[in-house]
């Protein structure tokens, strides 16, 4: 009988000791990883891009993206471009339109469907990302993306930004500045730069919140999504297209 009690006490004190040993580690892990809240599906990050405000020849959004994410900014065929300026000319009317083009953060992303390892994934808050540890560099996602939004890293990398890890031989694309969002900020580098330049063509926000500025505006103005016919439900809306 007393032997039983001893065993019980022994187990209890062992468990407490183990807990004491592990707890600081868990705390440190949380500290190191910043936000303790996972991405929530109550949020869907998205954008409304007003092409009427987007100025032809201005590429402040591109420069800001490159700076924020530590991209070299080359424009050769093998260089990475997470965001690019596209100039459109309507074949019938001749009307010129200018707009920024990047990952459209689809709700039904083809890149995620085709990725063999699950490296391409969609977060609960709608951001489509590439897990740099799982990407094997097969480029099937680049074949599948209807927006040509993805780039493959063709050369060894230097001077990476610690909060934007990248990797030679893997695929990458616009992250909606996920590092900012996870810090609790409410804007992306491109949207910020566009506002600073006085164009305010990029409006970023939570599409699931009916009271957010972006949701209100999408309700008010006529907007469309690029290749809406594909039914992929992109998170980026365009006005004036």
């Amino acid at each position: 009988m007393s032997g039983d009690l001893n065993r019980r006490e022994f187990l209890r004190s062992s468990a407490m000791l183990a807990g004491l040993a592990v707890a600081p580690g868990v705390l440190l892990y949380d500290l190191a990883h910043g936000k303790d809240q996972p991405a929530s599906s109550s949020v869907r990050w998205g954008m409304l891009i007003d092409t009427n405000q987007c100025e032809e020849g201005c590429d402040d959004c591109v420069k800001a993206c490159n700076k924020e994410n530590g991209l070299p900014g080359g424009t050769g065929p093998a260089d990475e471009q997470w965001i690019r300026k596209v100039e459109l000319k309507n074949i019938k009317t001749g009307k010129i339109t200018s707009l920024p083009m990047m990952c459209q953060h689809c709700a039904e992303p083809p890149c995620v469907d085709v990725c063999p390892t699950g490296a391409s994934f969609k977060r609960a808050d709608g951001i489509v990302l590439v897990d740099r540890h799982l990407c094997i560099g097969c480029r099937y996602c680049m074949m599948a993306c209807p927006y040509k939004a993805r780039s493959f890293v063709h050369e060894p990398l230097h001077d990476q930004k610690p909060e934007v890890p990248r990797g030679k031989g893997t695929v990458e694309s616009c992250t909606l500045c996920v590092q900012r969002i996870d810090r609790g900020e409410n804007t992306t580098a491109c949207a910020e730069a566009c506002s600073k330049a006085g164009h305010k063509a990029i409006l970023f926000g939570n599409l699931n919140d009916p009271d957010s500025e972006v949701s209100k505006r999408i309700r008010e103005v006529a907007s469309t999504r690029i290749r809406a016919d594909l039914g992929l439900d992109p998170g980026l809306h365009y006005e004036g297209l």
């Binding site: 085709v114 990725c115 063999p116 390892t117 799982l134 990407c135 094997i136 097969c138 493959f152 030679k168």
Partner: peptide
Amino acid sequence: DLGRPDRVIVAATHYNPTSVFA
């Protein structure tokens, strides 16, 4: 030809059932 041929084993350890490649 993979960008990361050293990681080819990941194709076996992480499997995305919706991928034709997988």
